[in-house]
Design a protein around this nucleic acid. Sequence first.
DNA 1: TTGTACGCGTTATCAT
DNA 2: ATGATAACGCGTACAA
Lengths: 338, 338
Amino acid sequence: MLPLLFIRKFIMSVSSNHLTIKDIAKLSGVSKSTVSRVINHDPMVKESTRNKVMAIIEQYQFTPSKSARAMRGYGNKVIGIIVTRLDSMSENQAVRCMLPIFYEHDYDPIIMESQFKVEKVQEHLSMLKEKQADGVVIFAFTGLDNNVLSFWQNKSVIMARSYPDYNCVCYDDIGAVTQLLHHLHLTKKHQKIAYIGVEEQDQTTGAVRYQAYLAFCQRYNIIPHAYLGKLSFLSGYDLAPLVLASAPTAIVCATEAIALGLNKYLYEKQLNHIVVASVGNSELLNFLFPQTLFIELGFDKAGTYAANKLIAMLQKVTDFNAIAKTMTIPSQLNHSSS
Amino acid sequence: MLPLLFIRKFIMSVSSNHLTIKDIAKLSGVSKSTVSRVINHDPMVKESTRNKVMAIIEQYQFTPSKSARAMRGYGNKVIGIIVTRLDSMSENQAVRCMLPIFYEHDYDPIIMESQFKVEKVQEHLSMLKEKQADGVVIFAFTGLDNNVLSFWQNKSVIMARSYPDYNCVCYDDIGAVTQLLHHLHLTKKHQKIAYIGVEEQDQTTGAVRYQAYLAFCQRYNIIPHAYLGKLSFLSGYDLAPLVLASAPTAIVCATEAIALGLNKYLYEKQLNHIVVASVGNSELLNFLFPQTLFIELGFDKAGTYAANKLIAMLQKVTDFNAIAKTMTIPSQLNHSSS
DNA sequence: TTGTACGCGTTATCAT
DNA sequence: ATGATAACGCGTACAA
């Protein structure tokens, strides 16, 4: 009786058009190893044979099996991108800049959602580890501590927050708020500038931006009037009457969502003499309330930088003397309405 | 001289804590084959041995190497999701419902952007083919024809548009517009209902919804007043004065973006007696103009359905008699403001 | 410079 | 019911 194995093999060799390194070897009259060497750019192959093999590879559109080389420890050419929420405008902008760069370098980005949960990050990370992903981009959030990330130390870029010994890409929260205030106070001569922010539990959007406001006030002798709430339109709307009690001529908002809420309130009350300034911008804010002054945190630049950085990291085989650094993306003031 | 291979092997066996099926076999006193059988739920293993092996697997938190089993032709457990734009609110909502379902079944979803370009879809698709992805979800758009998709015929779900011989999940554009009009005309007794839509080049959002409006008008003897523009806030804002010329008491908008633009215009002109109705909703529309009547197309339900459908398709080994069907997700009218 | 032989972790076939 | 062994496609130490 003929073993089934042989039958299957025969069928395969006829019907399946999936070429392997072996087939290429046969077709170009060399051994598997040589083909492998050609593929991996081994300098020890003769020019002539290389050309010969390359020709066959091109002709048959051969691509080595990803799974097989993954098994040999070559990495899957996979990069995980863990965002907090898929519908976060800011992260979206950054991610959209990353994707083409990863594609360019033949990496397959796989996007996952943490929903601000540490356990989700852990889950995704172990999934990626199993899959032998090559690198990760993680959008950090309040509560995420670095011990979860240790395995990825030299193959990850952390966004929006700075961790020691990790490569991070941060936004210039302090600079953004300061520039906004600088423009309002020094250029536009506003004296009474209030602030609506986010609770200090949130490190960057909350605490840092608020502190920047306080610091500026102290330096320029402005009496601070600040209210902190949640990260939503509603919060901006609800805090509006409170902050107006101090009769400000300008109000700085920690986020564009808050600015949207505030603007709605001001519009309803016909208080259109008050200048609204916001960290961050959106198409909608710009459309609905075009007079709003805003400063871009540079999510697109951050995304581009992060992707390039990660790829550079992964290309170094062993980077002993590569120091993990935090890059701060400079903010850019919107001058169209100034 | 000791071959390097052995040295490496020795080092690996000591330092690397990565367990393989072999190690589990050794630890539980059986052969690799039996462990494999346990993993793959082969009914031919004795209860006692299964429990023994399972215990070891649990204890050591063993997970079979994805790459290795992928090489054995088990599929990569990868599903491609091709969205048009990463920041499309509607697609986002659908995708967010899909992800947990795919994770649940141990599939790795990889999200890609087509940017409404056919060539991008092609590019992504061939990348996924190379990667031996198991299935695809594609968000269709005007201009995408099915000959690009032929390879994926029985392993894909197409969103938002119906193709013969493919499994599709569509939104009930006609039903949505009709329900909206039904409510306005029959329940709220509006007689003059105008429409702002999208150019008919866009099949679903443009043509279909517009036709539904016209059909309703004809049936109920309403004089149609419609203007078609682009898919943006600005279009809604710009077309507002034109559509107001017919002195309508209610205006139906093809999208929430248009509704947003229209609302802005009406608010500025203090025309708050006019009822705005919209297909689709967003947190923002709801917050800024809560009196807007809207109908949900059910993106979340569509996402959930699509994901489950795809997984069901992939589980059937050979589905000869499975007929490709188009599922239409029912719309749901918002009754909070009725 | 190239070919041979083996190993990676898993599953399938065949023999016990 | 279980074990031994040959594949899968690829990379690489070693011999030639």
